[in-house]
Amino acid sequence: MTADTPDTPILSVRALTKTYGARIGCEDISLDVWPGEVLAIVGESGSGKTTLLNCISARLPRSSGEVLYRMRDGETRDLDDLSEAERRFLARTDWGFVHQNPADGLRMRVSAGANVGERLMAVGERHYGQIRETATDWLGRVEIASDRIDDQPVAFSGGMRQRLQIARNLVTRPRLVFMDEPTGGLDVSVQARLLDLLRQLVADLGLAVVIVTHDLAVARLLSQRMIVMKDGHVIESGLTDRVLDDPQHAYTQLLVASIPES
Rank of each mutant, 00 (worst) to 15 (best):
A208K: 12
G238M: 14
G96D: 00
L205G: 01
A192D: 14
Y251R: 01
L194Y: 08
P260H: 02
I10H: 06
D245F: 00
A22G: 15
E37T: 06
P174R: 13
A103Q: 05
G113K: 04
A257R: 13
S45V: 10
D78E: 04
L60H: 07
A145G: 06
Y20T: 15
E66C: 07
P35S: 12
T76N: 05
G36E: 01
V142Y: 02
Y251P: 00
G185W: 15
H249A: 11
Y20H: 13
A40F: 07
R199F: 00
D137R: 14
L16P: 08
G74A: 09
H233P: 03
Q100W: 05
V13M: 12
I24L: 09
D246C: 09
L186H: 09
Q152Y: 03
V33G: 06
D204F: 09
T136I: 02
T136A: 02
A155P: 00
M121H: 12
S64Y: 01
S146T: 15
D245G: 10
P247V: 00
N101L: 05
D245C: 10
E236Q: 10
E75G: 02
D73N: 14
Q253M: 13
V13P: 03
R225F: 06
T134A: 06
I259F: 03
L195E: 08
L139S: 03
E66M: 03
E84I: 09
L205T: 03
T213V: 14
T8K: 15
D104K: 13
D147A: 09
G206Y: 07
R119M: 12
R168A: 15
R107D: 14
H233G: 05
I211R: 08
S237Y: 05
A217P: 02
V38F: 15
W95Q: 08
M160H: 04
R107K: 12
K18Y: 01
K49H: 14
Y128R: 13
D73R: 07
A257T: 02
T240H: 05
L207M: 08
V171W: 06
Q200T: 08
E125Q: 01
R168C: 10
S258I: 08
T183W: 04
D180I: 05
I227Y: 10
L52V: 02
V218Q: 12
V243T: 05
E84H: 04
T2S: 15
N169D: 12
Y69I: 15
S83M: 07
G48Q: 07
L254H: 05
E261Q: 04
K49T: 13
R77S: 00
I29W: 01
R199A: 01
E143I: 00
A257I: 02
P182A: 13
A58K: 10
R141A: 14
A217T: 13
E84G: 04
I56Q: 00
G158W: 08
H127W: 05
E143H: 09
Q130L: 11
R161V: 01
L197W: 01
T93Q: 05
V218C: 12
V42P: 14
F89T: 14
E86A: 12
H127Y: 07
G105H: 12
E44P: 02
M108C: 12
D246V: 04
D81P: 02
D241S: 13
I149P: 02
G129E: 07
R199E: 01
Q224L: 13
L90A: 08
R62P: 03
M179R: 11
V142G: 00
L201H: 06
S111Q: 10
L222M: 04
L197A: 09
L195P: 01
P260R: 01
E261N: 06
